[in-house]
């Protein structure tokens, strides 16, 4: 089945361009984290930044000028606490104004808050935030698409921690039972919960085997390797195929800022002026190191 082409496929981004966009996304995240007084879930934002860049600038067939187009791909942020990362990724794709996000984030009557709200911000597909809710919603949207004979995909991004919620596995069974090949779940496998590292208290492993055992098509990649993300997206089975796909993305919480990486203290926080400079310098250094 041909995918509807809402995105500018004539001039697709190169992997290098996508990497630059991801760098810009991280810089903007840190900037917001430095200007907003309250806590930002910066650790899980940074671990999701490459995935969201790959989705909004390469994978998703969406049109920022026509947000209700019935043939658009649906994207649900199941890990709703990474909302700001999604808002900024979407602003870079043309959905929202970045200044609007930075100037109003978390303030009274702002559309941009800690967890996305469909009512206040119609450009997002669903109100999320409570963990384990995105996949059931995505199953419903995928069933709806199937029912109408539409060929778009429904894509969700979960954190690995939230897959401790039973509702995720209820929905995983439903997706398999209803053969929803139009459903794709990306998992930000940063291996950290809020207060501990995954395998310290909760054994998620053997992780990919669990998804395979639930009948899903499993793809396992480095979630910070833009080339791998692009390849995984390009290789997704057709939306009329019969198996849902999970893309387990190995990531690092706090990715790109050395003092935040794999540091439980940076699940959420805010940056003072000095820390912001330090974080920006670390991000720059990390980029130079990786481009060597």
């Amino acid at each position: 089945m041909a995918q509807p082409s809402l995105q500018n496929t004539e001039n697709p981004h190169t992997v290098e361009e996508l990497e630059n966009l991801a760098f810009e996304l991280r810089s903007k995240l840190l900037h917001l984290c430095g200007t907003y007084e309250g806590a930002v879930h910066i650790g899980g934002d940074l671990s999701s930044a490459d995935i969201l860049t790959a989705l909004f600038h390469h994978g998703l067939h969406v049109d920022p000028t026509d947000i209700a187009n019935p043939t658009r791909d649906r994207f649900l942020l199941s890990k709703g606490h990474a909302a700001v990362c999604m808002y900024i990724a979407m602003s870079m794709r043309g959905f929202f104004s970045y200044d609007g996000i930075v100037d109003t984030y978390g303030q009274l009557d702002s559309a941009y808050g800690m967890h996305p709200c469909k009512v206040q911000l119609p450009g997002v597909e669903a109100s999320t935030g409570s963990l384990g809710h995105g996949l059931p919603l995505a199953v419903g949207m995928a069933l709806s698409a199937r029912g109408r004979g539409e060929s778009h995909r429904v894509v969700t991004l979960m954190g690995d921690g939230e897959t401790g919620e039973g509702s995720v596995w209820e929905a995983a069974m439903a997706a398999n039972s209803y053969e929803l090949g139009n459903l794709v779940a990306f998992i930000d496998r940063n291996r950290q919960l809020m207060t501990s590292f995954d395998e310290e208290r909760v054994f998620l492993e053997p992780y990919t085997d669990k998804w395979a055992a639930f009948g899903w098509n499993v793809v396992h990649i480095d979630g910070h390797d833009m080339g791998a993300l692009v390849q995984a997206i390009d290789a997704l089975p057709a939306s009329d195929s019969r198996k849902p796909t999970v893309v387990v993305c190995e990531t690092v919480k706090g990715k790109g800022v050395d003092f935040m990486e794999r540091n439980l203290a940076w699940h959420a926080g805010s940056l003072g002026a000095a820390d912001l400079d330090r974080a920006m310098a670390a991000l720059q250094a990390s980029r130079e190191k990786e481009s060597v």
Binding site: K118, P136, L137, V139, A174
Partner: peptide
Amino acid sequence: GVAAGLAY
């Protein structure tokens, strides 16, 4: 949850 997804 699936019902909500359908309703969206």
